[in-house]
Each structure stands twice: as C-alpha cells, then as structure tokens.
Nucleic acid binder design. Structure first.
Lengths: 262, 262
DNA sequence: TCGCGCTCGATACAGTGTATCGAGCGATAC
DNA sequence: GTATCGCTCGATACACTGTATCGAGCGCGA
C-alpha cells in the first residue's frame, strides 16, 4: 500500500517502499470513541497469543478486543508482519526490564564478568520464551531492529567489549552472534518439545507412549545403533539443565579462543 | 530423497488421536486418472516453495499442480502441517544423500574425525537451507521424527559415539544437540538477512540504505556505544565465513570439555 | 456559510484449511 | 446376470484470513 499523496514527508528511508515500522512515527491519536495506540494494540495481540497461540492472533480478533473494526489498525501498522515485529520487540522490552533487579543469574556473582553477563541475558530470554511460547516461533525469523532488541544487543556487546581477552569488536560480534544463534535454536527446540508433550495429553507418559512407539520401532530396526543407545541409556535431563549445558559448551568455546591474559 | 528403511510395521501409536504421518502407512494407490503418492505431493509442494516461498504452498495449489482437487490430498495427509513435516524430512533426505560422495567438508580430511564429521553435516545442512530458503522457516519449529531426520541424527551421534574423549552417550547427546541448536539459529539468521537484503532491492547497497538509516539514527543517539563500534568498525564478513566461525566456536567448546586422552 | 480535500474505516474480495455428505463404484448374494 | 449393500472419495460449502477500495463524514479555509 502506497501513501495516498505519493511522497511521504520528512522521514528518511530513501528509495522505494514504505519505511519500516521503526522509522515511522506513531500517528497522532485522533479523538476517537476508544483511543488506540501501538502499545494498546500490541498488548492486546500479546494477550491473545499468550492465551491461544500465535495462530489465534488475527487482525480481526485484535481489533475486536479493542472495540474496533479491523481496518482501524492500519493507521498504526501497515501489515500484520509489522504487528508481529512489534510483539517481538515488546518481549525484548520485558527481557531488558528484567535486567534491573540484582539478578546475576550465575553463581560467580562478580560484575564485569562477561560469562555471567551472557548467561544472565540468555536466562532472561529463556524465561521470556517460557512466558510467551509464541516468541520462539518468531525467533530468528526476521532481523530484529526494534529499539528493545537493539538495546539487548547493546547490552550483550557492551559486556564483552573491552573485556580481557577480546581483541576487538570482531571477536565480540562473533561471540555474541554465536550465543544468540544457539539461543534461538535451543529455545525453539525446547518450545517445540513442550508443545509436542502437551499435545499428546498433558503428561509425559502420554508423550512417551505417542512418540515412543515410533522411536521404538525405528530403533528396533537395528539400523540406528547410536540412536538406540541414546534412547535406551541416555539420561532424560530436564529442559533447564539441558539448556544450561549447551550454553556452557558455547561459552567454553568462546573462552577457549580468547587471547591469553598478559 | 533417500528412503532409509521402512519403519511402518503394524501401525502402533496407542491412545487417542490419529497417529503421526510417520506411523501411518501410505494408502494403496487407487487406479485414478493421475496416480498420486506422498512423494509426488511433497515434490510438488517443494517445487512451489522453492519458487515462491512457503506462503505460496497451499493445498489448493499443490493439488492443482497435480491435476487434482484439494481434498484428494487428504487421503495421504491429514493436515497441512503434516505436509510441511514431510517437506522438511524430504530436505533431510537430500542432506543425507549428499553424504555419499567423498565430501569431507573439512581440510583435515581424516575419516573418523568427529570434528570433520560434524562440520560436514553442518555444511550439508547449510547448503540445503540455501537451496530451499523455506527450510529455515520450519527448522526447529516441530520435533523432527521423520526417517531421514532420524537418519541424519544417527549419523551425527554415530560420529561421536565411541570417539576418544566422549565419556558416554550423554556427552554425545549434549554435543550433538548443541551443534544442532546453533545450526538452527545460524541458518535462520542467515536466511532472514538474505531475505531482508533481497527485499530492499536485490543488492547490498539498497539494504544498507534501508536498514542503514534506522541503525544510523539509533547509533547516532549515543546511547549504544558498543553497537556503534560494531556498525562502524566491525568487519563485514561474508555469511559463509561467519557461519563457520560460529560453528568453530561451538566445536571448540565441545573439544574443551572432552576427557583428556589416556 | 459554503465548498473543498483529506482521512478513515465499513464493505468487499480473493484466498485459506478443512468438515460434510451425496454420488459413484466394487464386491457380494441370489 | 442382476440387485443390493457399503464404503470410499472428492466436489461443494463454510468459517475465517489479510488487505484493497472507495463512499461517507469531518475539519479547515475563504
């Protein structure tokens, strides 16, 4: 959809196409029966998603929750995808907000410790993903350029930038990106598994009975010896521990590549 | 697509609900005007997705590509989600098939080297994701229990199981899972970035101009010093190199945790 | 007070996934 | 050979999606 008058005024984003949500200031709130705003819209959408999953978020339902017609939202968004971007950034806002309390998230405790910092960030993100399971569905799907996402990125970068052993900004970027990539994959996996469990009847035994037969039969063919060992002898650790174990592996890898002190 | 042994025996999956696609044998092909099969359906869907993205895959279009009505597909699938699962497993089949040629994927070359093995697997997966950008959209979204996905999992587990330093199946599982999680995140990120670039006009300069203003303005506030350093002084490495760098970090982390030889 | 122009949002549209159920066909019984 | 049954299949129909369109309604300038 192109702005009616043709050229849209002052704001940047050269070239064709409409500028991003982040580049488009929120329009002034007209005195309407019920005043709307991006914030209210996003809040309503998040509530819907929390309650019934992402696929329950339709512009109609969001609008209805705000006593409005569907098209009314298009003053504040130009696409459903933008709404999803805003939702993601809202969660990033929660994650950032969780930083404030003294919440080291690691036993080492000492401030300025980059491992502790990254671990804390990862844990806050995980907690947010557990609160909002739909968050994992969106994770990594589109570049995150919202203010809160960038703020969290800044926090992570700042924790490493200048820390002993990190030789320059490139090393910092590499480390942060790797941790973030792990985070995306791990949270998606955990969410997917939780959902699968829940779908089979709200308890783990049901899941074992449902995925079990398939896996058992697969394993029983004898073509998958290592998988068989994993299924039979692998310890079934709880998701939180598994998450942390993988995270530690990644952090170890970063630490291993640091310039030696001195 | 590689068919790794048929697992469908007697059709188990106890309990309520319909069994999984993997547990439901393909129905016998009736002599219809044009014979159908899961394989043909999936192939048509993949072709559509390759050409126009995941959102172009609708049951109607897939059916139309096979000269059939939409409901005809429901003999072979019970849900669109199942079609997506089958598509994902088909790609896993491609990945597995790419193993056969002498394709070490690393300079070390020596067989039995777990790092080389994992690297090769990661690279094959990445190549598949580049061939089928929609693959990244589905990655990690649901547990992968298809025969080809399990086959690839087996390959990875087998590469580590019994390798020196890995003390048991739990260590192997942890390592493989961590690499896989990184893989999911990294491929999603790369795909998302490629798409964003492409969307802004098919060349990098256009992307810089589009994401640039927003980032520049954000950075210009002075509130994001580390991010500013990253934008200004960070080296813009190509995606393949960045992928490998992160992967190496993860592999280093695994290596660091291994039991010392002897 | 009149007229213009812009903006907004109800209506409409093309498309989605899938439940339903009558038509059509194969096999069986006489 | 024919009549009947029963099952399976896929065309039709439905509820719902995101969003383009354009007439109604309002604020503002003369």
């Amino acid at each position: 959809m192109v702005q009616r008058g043709g050229v849209n005024g002052t704001d940047g984003a050269a070239g064709v196409g409409r500028p991003t949500v982040w580049d488009r200031p929120e329009p002034p709130s007209r005195p309407a029966p019920s005043p709307l705003s991006r914030e209210r819209i996003v809040a309503a959408a998040v509530e819907l998603a929390d309650a019934d999953g992402l696929e329950a978020v339709s512009l109609r339902k969001v609008a209805a929750a705000l006593d409005a017609g569907p098209m009314r939202l298009y003053r504040y968004l130009s696409t459903k995808e933008e709404l999803l971007d805003l939702m993601v950034d809202a969660v990033h806002g929660e994650i950032a907000a969780a930083t404030d309390p003294a919440d080291p998230g690691d036993p080492d405790g000492r401030g300025g410790d980059w491992r502790a910092e990254l671990r804390g960030c990862a844990h806050r993100t995980r907690r947010a993903a557990l609160r909002h399971p739909w968050f994992a569905d969106l994770l990594g799907g589109r570049p995150q350029l919202g203010p809160n996402a960038l703020g969290n990125l800044e926090t992570a970068l700042a924790a490493l930038y200048g820390a002993p052993g990190f030789t320059g900004i490139d090393a910092v970027l590499r480390a942060v990106r790797t941790v973030d990539d792990y985070l995306v994959g791990a949270l998606r996996r955990e969410t997917a598994e939780r959902r699968a469990e829940r779908a089979t009847g709200l308890d783990k035994d049901a899941w074992r009975r449902s995925a079990g037969p398939h896996l058992s039969r697969t394993v029983a063919t004898g073509n998958y010896p290592a998988l068989a060992a994993a299924v039979r002898y692998g310890t079934h650790t709880d998701p939180g521990t598994a998450f942390e174990a993988g995270l530690d592996l990644v952090l170890d890898g970063i630490a291993a590549g640091l310039a030696p002190p001195g």
